[in-house]
Design a protein around this nucleic acid. Structure first.
Lengths: 213, 213
DNA sequence: GTCCGTTTGTGAATGAGAACTCAAGCACTA
DNA sequence: TAGTGCTTGAGTTCTCATTCACAAACGGAC
């Protein structure tokens, strides 16, 4: 294994591999070949092998990958071994849904702080967490929280992002449109834009009004 | 403009262009250059021009693109001119949040049917829509609904997807893990996997425990 | 009507990622 | 110890996407 820059797409797939392996390990499987994993995850075998080879040699020829070993390694690579505290900014419909979403916990990610704009929500306690004023975001530095989920309207996204950055946040999962956020920010931002994804779905409907050229 | 296969990535960006243009038109801007649009949307100018050139010639040299004209054309291309009814499957935390999300409406997309598994929710009326049993999904054919949003647990994703397909659904916005869904389905499926996106965020944290090679 | 500054549309060049292929390696058998 | 059947790891090829660069086109000034 030589040194290589690791493609973004590879990193994007690592959590998928991890989930598949955990599933198999749960079922009692000790080994799995890249070919079988490919069938399960709908990702081609060579793709899986190449992705993994960027990080080391985890498999044994003739046998495959140890489900337990490889999932442990992937946890290490993804930095999911130590638990991470996450701040949730915005407790509207989406924020509330995310707080209640349980899928994060198995990866050691836990929401431990919530911030809101709306004075009527500030002070309320949900899931044992007191909702704080957005102005108190700076307190995150003290609490050593490095990750945040941004579930607020587009208008305030830029300002809040800057505030998070100043509070020492290093990674953001952002649900606001990506253009709302300062492009030259040093923080790693992963954007999920549900509206955009739904808006391009009708494009694929077969009965399509062609536009004049 | 010669005939070209249109790249997926281009289609993915079209709604972004549309949103930017609508924003500018609202502000009273009549024209915009690709360079200015690039600054706003954080997408390079040549990229924008090339993307648009796949569909026709919308701009005038020396002037730029008409905000109104181009946004109308993009609406046509994206098939967002006629209103679309959307079925929401799964009325848990996420489903409820999506129902209340208003961003869809400006694109002519409206949720007009809701399905659930949980007998305690079936029959309830939310936003003037009666929650139906998942078993009644076949009724979508009669109602001429072609799009669906899937906000259900991973376990039932495969079965429900098949049901949707049989009911004539042609496009799905899916929030379950992508491997849960039959890969050889003919329906267009766009998957959003929030858990996966959050799980790879810690990878980018600078203090990273390197794994042994 | 002509010149000038600006902006488009697009072929060509570059870059990134996916897929293919196969030599090398391991388990198992005898 | 040698042979067989799988499976990995990685160099090569191929496909797709982005960026560059420039000729052609337009508005406005004079």
């Amino acid at each position: 294994m030589k040194f290589h820059r690791i493609p973004d797409e590879t990193v994007r797939r690592l959590p998928i591999y991890l989930r598949g392996l955990l599933l198999l390990a749960e079922q009692g499987r000790e080994h799995v070949s890249s070919h079988e994993l490919a069938d399960i995850l709908h990702i081609k075998g060579p793709q899986i092998r190449k992705d993994l080879s960027y990080f080391g040699e985890f498999g044994t020829p003739g046998v495959g990958y140890g489900t337990k070993e490889l999932s442990d390694c992937l946890r290490d690579i993804l930095n999911l071994n130590c638990p991470h505290k996450v701040a949730l900014v915005g407790y509207g419909n989406l924020g509330a849904a995310i707080l209640r979403y349980s899928g994060f916990r198995s990866y050691g990610l836990k929401i431990t702080a919530i911030f809101e704009n709306n004075p009527r929500k500030i002070g309320r306690i949900v899931q044992n967490i007191r909702i704080q004023d957005v102005k108190e975001i700076s307190s995150l530095k003290r609490k050593k929280i490095e990750l945040a989920i941004l579930a607020i309207p587009a208008e305030s996204a830029r300002e809040v992002t800057e505030r998070l950055e100043q509070a020492g946040i290093l990674g953001i999962l952002n649900f606001a449109p990506s253009y709302c956020i300062d492009a030259r920010s040093k923080v790693k931002i992963i954007t999920i834009d549900i509206g955009m994804d739904l808006a391009r779905l009708p494009y694929y409907l077969p009965i399509k009004a062609e536009i004049a050229g």
